[in-house]
């Protein structure tokens, strides 16, 4: 299952809620969700811990737009929109954590 998160983990509990609930699989960070995969944030340790259970992807155009393309946490998988489509296609279902 693909879980899509679009909120900053520094202002919203959405990512945390997703990590605590989802069984595993793929997580894709888009829009303001991309702040979760940058180095040096207060939530980096939590993200790294989650990477043992989930494959974590980030929509690079969103990260680049926010000026943080060079701070990607190691091991996070960058995708473009075509990669996003591929993730949605290869998982049986997807949930947007709105």
């Amino acid at each position: 299952m693909l879980h899509i998160v679009n909120k900053s983990p520094l202002t919203s509990n959405t990512l945390e809620s997703c990590l605590n609930t989802a069984m595993g699989g793929d997580i894709l960070l888009i829009e303001d969700g991309v702040y979760a995969v940058t180095r040096g944030t207060a939530v980096e340790a939590k993200l790294r811990a989650a990477m043992g259970k989930f494959r974590v992807h980030v929509l690079m155009p969103d990260l680049d737009a926010r000026g943080l393309g060079d701070r990607l946490v190691e091991g996070v998988l960058p995708v473009d929109y075509a990669g996003f489509v591929e993730l949605a296609a290869s998982n049986k279902t997807c949930q947007s954590w709105l």
Binding site: T21, M23, T93, C94, Q95, W97, L98
Partner: peptide, 14 residues
């Protein structure tokens, strides 16, 4: 809850 989510065909969230 997570296990139930995984069983679905369509998940909608607003």
């Amino acid at each position: 809850m997570g296990a139930l989510m995984d069983e679905q065909d369509v998940v909608l969230s607003f």
